[in-house]
Simulated scan of single mutants.
Amino acid sequence: MMDKPEIRPSEGYMTEERLMMQEMARDFAMKEVLPAANRLDPEKGDIPQDLIDRMGELGFFGILIPERFGGLGLGMFEYCLVAEELSRAWMSVGSIIARGNMFYKSIPARTDEEKLEKIKLMAQGKYLGAFSMSEPNAGSDMASIGCRAVRDEDEWVVTGSKYWCTFADRADFMQVICRTSADPDAPRWAGLTAILFEKPRGEFPQGVSGHSIPKIGYHGWKTYELAFDEARTPAYDYGTTGGAFKAVVSGLEGARAHTAARSIGLARGALEDAIAHAKQREQFDRPISDFQAIRFKIASMATEVEAARQLMYFVCHQIDNGHNCAKEAAMVKFYAAEMAERVTSEALQILGGAGYTTLHAVERHWRDARLTKIFEGSSEIQQRIIADTLLGKPTRD
């Protein structure tokens, strides 16, 4: 009889190709991303351009881009696999890969040939986008967007304010969600369009000004408040005028899986650092890893990380196989984000006073984990989605 093959965790998901990709991403994250994060995050420095270029060489910006466009032609599973590894070192690096993978379907181009060339550059990390949807008075309620775009022959003219636009300075183009219809009889979510602005790196488009928002975390790149003062841009039209709401919503399952992957990476980084510290730190003539209180903390932390990871794998598998999983995507985003804050906080507790300094990465993981409960739909929004799926919409008077 043949010997039974070795059983690996998640064997049904983890093919040899995926294991190789995971190992490659992990090696890059620990050898190249982590040292940069430890050096730059305490001073709120930006992700170095040479690190972005290296990620482009490795194909990280083109994981989801079809092979015919120069990408790897892989799925959400591989995308999130890489995002977890990068986020274990620095969440901002785990996030920046979305600036290629999630943008290739809508870029500023006049012809199919121009679009193809730009997508090929995007897959190499040489043509990246920024997304601007939120406003001072519009966040979870996308239907409240008030930034206006008016058509003037073959151009859009945009006026209004935007908030929380990350990478607006270093991107090659911006997707800006604007209101293009004010029909009082239409639903509130109708009449929204993604307006595309191409621009030089390091600058804003003409007619756009902005300033960096002071953040407590998510360093490595800047996040902006933007003001559009009759800013003009060509009317690149791919048949999406007025349909931005549905387009954004259709991409939320993948975005939420990506946030779960980032959350898991953060939590795993904190867990690994806590384990290493517990083995090295001695009190009362023994390593603190001998104490049951610490051992049980680590056992609970590891269990939560793995539970979130397995749910993420399932959601990615469903997305890649074309199955609707809005409820499960909300669940994994909700659970992983909440888990990440708990685990990183417990890790900081294990490090004690050392954890409350910028000398150790755990405080970075802790600060960044707090954001995962807010962006890509807050925890409360995810709970609402889950509850509405299970119970139906709330009754109204």
Rank of each mutant, 00 (worst) to 15 (best):
L351G: 05
D320N: 08
G377T: 01
P5G: 07
S378K: 00
G56E: 01
H277Y: 13
S10F: 10
N321V: 14
D46S: 09
R262G: 15
E113F: 09
N321P: 15
K115P: 12
M1S: 15
V362F: 05
C147F: 00
Y236C: 14
T358K: 06
A98M: 06
G217M: 09
L128W: 12
A130T: 13
G94T: 04
S87R: 08
R201G: 12
I381M: 04
A267H: 08
A261T: 08
E198F: 09
L391T: 06
G377S: 07
E117W: 04
G129Y: 04
E363P: 04
S250P: 07
I119Q: 03
D285I: 08
A138L: 01
A109R: 04
S300T: 15
F28P: 06
D320R: 06
V82A: 03
I145S: 02
E306A: 10
G355C: 05
E328S: 13
S212P: 15
Q22Y: 03
D152T: 13
P35Y: 03
L390H: 02
E23Y: 10
D368H: 07
T358Q: 05
W366N: 05
R256C: 08
G220P: 11
R88Y: 04
S345E: 08
L311K: 14
F296A: 15
D183N: 12
R201K: 11
P9A: 00
F103G: 04
A302S: 13
W164M: 13
M24E: 12
E380F: 01
L40Q: 05
G59H: 01
E85I: 02
A329Y: 06
E43G: 07
G220E: 04
P136T: 03
R342Y: 05
R370A: 12
R309K: 10
V157D: 10
K215A: 06
L116M: 15
E363G: 05
S132Y: 00
N101V: 09
M102Y: 11
D368M: 02
D169H: 09
R39L: 15
R309T: 10
G73N: 13
G70Q: 07
I96D: 01
R364H: 10
A387K: 04
R286G: 11
L64V: 06
A387F: 03
T159S: 15
R179L: 02
Q310G: 14
A308H: 02
S263Q: 02
Y104P: 02
M2N: 06
I288F: 01
C178T: 09
K246A: 15
M142L: 05
S95D: 07
S263I: 00
A89V: 00
E6Y: 08
G352Y: 03
R232V: 09
Y236M: 12
I294G: 04
K31G: 05
K44C: 11
V208A: 01
D388H: 13
E84G: 08
P42L: 08
I374G: 11
H211K: 10
E272K: 13
M133F: 01
A260R: 00
R232S: 12
G59W: 02
T193D: 05
W366I: 00
T389Y: 09
K120E: 13
V315A: 07
I177F: 09
D229A: 15
T223Q: 14
